[in-house]
């Protein structure tokens, strides 16, 4: 059972069940808890490739026990999302915790620079249960519908769900004087029907010059 103890602290009440959480994000617990290190990125070959790509950043732990466990990470704001058989896509570094029964997998979603460490990795979470995602500042939820497509700065993108097409656009509407601005700006475009979570802050990505 996930609830927010404060806007930046997640409390999970457990009765013998398990949650998966970002490694090192436990700040306190009462009762009895056992911790187990999991390797990130889900199972199978795709998970292996992902682990190779993302390195330690994706390390996940499993916490199992009875009592309350509190999670927080670098004073990030926490947003709860309920899944009922649908899929949530979340920028991997923004995933804090999921119910133990949810399935996760990670894909590299683009922007050049897997090797430079500033690309985007998206984790998909599927099944029935709760997910806690983090944002730097409280996330703003924006609805995308056919008449209202949305453009997002990749550095502010946190997560999306629903029937959405996501595409990366480079420098389409961004012009600067030659030599100013230092390269192209990437933007993320969403079309279809669904929800997008953006944070009031920008990660350092190669895009986002606007």
């Amino acid at each position: 059972m996930f609830r927010l103890q404060s806007s930046k602290v997640l409390a999970v009440e457990m009765t013998g069940d398990a949650v998966k959480a970002k490694n090192g994000s436990m700040v306190a617990y009462d009762g009895d808890m056992a911790f187990k290190k999991l390797t990130g990125g889900g199972d199978g070959i795709r998970g292996m490739v992902t682990r190779r790509l993302t390195g330690e950043q994706m390390t996940v732990m499993e916490v199992r026990g009875r009592g309350i466990c509190w999670f927080a990470d670098r004073a990030s704001d926490i947003n709860l999302v309920g899944l009922q058989g649908d899929t949530l896509s979340v920028e991997s570094s923004n995933l804090l915790a999921t119910d133990g029964g949810l399935r996760t997998g990670t894909v590299f979603t683009g922007l050049r620079g897997a090797s430079q460490g500033n690309g985007l990795f998206t984790t998909t979470v599927e099944g029935h249960g709760q997910v806690a995602i983090m944002s730097d500042g409280p996330a703003v939820l924006l609805r995308v519908s056919p008449q209202y497509p949305l453009t997002v700065d990749p550095g502010a993108y946190v997560a999306h769900q629903g029937n959405l097409r996501r595409s990366l656009q480079s420098g389409v509407t961004f012009r600067t004087l030659l030599g100013e601005g230092g390269g192209e700006a990437f933007q993320m475009r969403f079309e279809g029907d669904g929800l997008v979570y953006v944070q009031p802050s920008e990660r350092n990505t190669i895009g986002g010059d606007v």
């Binding site: 009922q84 649908d86 939820l141 519908s145």
Partner: peptide, 21 residues
């Protein structure tokens, strides 16, 4: 047209979802 939002799914109740309107 914004039909997304199955009861029980999505963000928890009380969280505001914005659109241009």
């Amino acid at each position: 047209m914004s039909t997304y939002g199955t009861p029980g799914a999505g963000p928890r109740p009380g969280v505001t979802v914005h659109d241009p309107t």
